[in-house]
Structures are given as structure tokens and as C-alpha cells.
Amino acid sequence: MNRRQWIGSAVAAGVLIAGAGAAYEFQPDSDRAILAAIGPVMLEGSLPPDAMQAFLDGFDIAVAGLTPSVQHDVEQLMTLLRLPPTRLLLAGVIKPWHLASRDEIAAFLTRWRYSGMATLRSAYDALHQLSCAAWYGNDRAWPQTGYPGPPKLR
């Protein structure tokens, strides 16, 4: 089995597992644990530890602004990341998220980013776009970039 077939079967496994009763539903606490692990790697060097709550809140707000069908896609993605079999098969992350190392998470993001499967690249893109929207929309992210914020009109 080559790498592409392996990933293809992993996706099929994930869909099966997800469809077999582990219904897609928001599990806010465990989803937050996943995002609390991914966020500092996605935004390494920019997101300070004491801004984690702002980042997680920003992520929730960004998801809430999507259409119901896209919110469903995001929930499905979070489900695949949450369930241990698909976390292992699809993301290649062996330990639970809160124990996974920075390098393991960076390797997972890199695999998805350059995956031969457009679906995994789009999942990376979704995590990346939501993370950046959640953080760089926040005034606290701006000083490091030099962005002064919007002009004062009066």
C-alpha cells in the first residue's frame, strides 16, 4: 500500500467511524483541547500563552459566522481529530492532543498541507484560515506585525 492509498483508506475509515454512530456534534471541551494544542503550533512565535482564551473564543466566533453546511464540515473535521482511531490514522498523531509534542503537531500540519489529497489540504487550509482569523483579528496580535490598527477619525 503506497502513501496515497493509505491516506485514502484512512479517510474512508474516518468517514465510517464518524458515520457509525459517533455522530458529529460539537463537544466544546474536547474541541477546545484540540485547538489549544494546535493553535500554539499554527501561530508559533505570535500567539502568547496568556492569549489562549482569546484565541479559542475567536475560533468559536469565526466558526459561528459560517453557513450551517460549512459549520457541519468543521464539526466533521473536529470529530476526525477527536476520535483516537482517526487522529492516529489521518493526522498521524499518536498521543492524545494535550500530550502531543510541538514537533508531532507541526509534522501533522505539514503532512496535510502538502498532502496528495486535496481533501486533506483543504482541511489544513480550514484550520489555518480559522486560526489566523481568530488571532489576527485581535488587537493583541497587531503590535508584533507593526499594524497600528484603524485610524482614529476624530
Binding site: L109, C132, A133
Partner: peptide
């Protein structure tokens, strides 16, 4: 900042 960071494809220190 949001438009730019979401459009850049890299993550982590490369993006920072």
C-alpha cells in the same frame, strides 16, 4: 492582518 495572514499559506514561525 486577517486578510493577509489567512492568505499566506505557511504556518508557525514561517508565517510569523
Amino acid at each position: 492582518p486577517v486578510l493577509t495572514s489567512t492568505t499566506i499559506t505557511a504556518f508557525g514561525l514561517d508565517e510569523t
